[in-house]
């Protein structure tokens, strides 16, 4: 059994966000981190590894320095890593990225028992499109927004966390799951893991490695193969903290009604 986890190196948007004149992120001026949701996917894979003995492989598309991030992920317990990296892949939007990652995952091979995992979305673009698009390309059933994952035989039960409630879904392997931060707390790298990570298998899939795959076509990869045009990008204003009322009594209900009435909502 294999678990293939997609991870992305992203600029740390928790600090100041720098934007280029063309609306894209100025990545060079921001610290690079592993996309937080992807670490939840890695953690979920490592938990399944502990339960089943599965091999955990991480895949990332990015420039060669992304190796550092992949080694850090291996220091947490991942078995091997693949970096998909080529000039031809540069400038890809989510559509093109999904094509390329799907080709890479297909090359690694998705067998009957296998699972592909992704973070819900990357903090640099917040699209949440790549995971589902990879599933579509590979013809895998997909379950997004996983807040709980349990595996019994070839059946995986996923509790999805949606804005207005939970949904529990059963899916058979092979499948693709996208993970959210509520799923788990990612573990730290361990000292032993760190001193082992540079001796673990690490491969680079360049253009030549993937060029014969049916998903890889000059017209559907890289900047020229990306249908997305960025008109503008901005940091959305923060929502207010909100107000919580507790209690199931009449006084609380009256207070709630009063607040809503004051805002002319009822």
């Amino acid at each position: 059994m294999k678990i293939i986890v997609c991870v992305k190196q992203v600029p740390d948007t928790s600090g100041k966000v720098a934007v280029n004149p063309d609306g894209t992120l100025n990545r060079a001026s921001m610290a690079a981190i592993t996309n937080p949701d992807d670490l939840n996917a890695v953690e979920a894979a490592l938990v399944l590894k502990e339960q089943t003995g599965a091999e955990v492989i991480v895949v990332s598309m990015g420039p060669p320095p992304a190796e550092g991030m992949l080694r850090e992920v291996m220091a947490r317990g991942v078995d091997r890593a693949v970096l998909v990296s080529a000039r031809e892949f540069g400038g890809s939007d989510t559509y093109a990225t999904s094509q390329i990652l799907a080709a890479a995952i297909d090359k690694i091979g998705v067998d009957k028992d296998d699972i592909v995992m992704c973070g819900r979305q990357a903090i640099d673009g917040d699209t949440a499109q790549v995971g589902p698009q990879i599933a579509e390309k590979l013809g895998l059933p997909q379950v997004s927004y996983a807040a709980e994952i349990t595996k019994e035989g070839d059946t995986i039960t996923v509790k999805r966390m949606l804005e207005d409630g939970y949904m529990t879904i059963k899916v058979k392997t092979p499948c693709l799951i996208t993970c959210i931060k509520e799923l788990n707390t990612p573990r730290y790298m361990s000292v032993g893991g760190i001193y082992e990570c540079y001796s673990k298998p690490y491969e680079i899939f360049d253009y030549n490695t993937l060029k014969d795959h049916p998903f890889i076509d000059k017209d559907t990869i890289g900047l020229s193969g990306s249908p997305t045009n960025i008109l503008t990008s901005f940091t959305p204003p923060q929502k207010g903290a909100g107000m919580m009322l507790e209690g199931a009594d009449k006084a609380t209900c009256d207070k709630l009604a009063g607040i809503l009435a004051a805002k002319h909502m009822i």
Partner: peptide, 10 residues
């Protein structure tokens, strides 16, 4: 070394 940088970060 890369390992020492990484372990310090951890």
């Amino acid at each position: 070394t890369k390992e020492q940088e990484m372990v310090r970060k951890m």
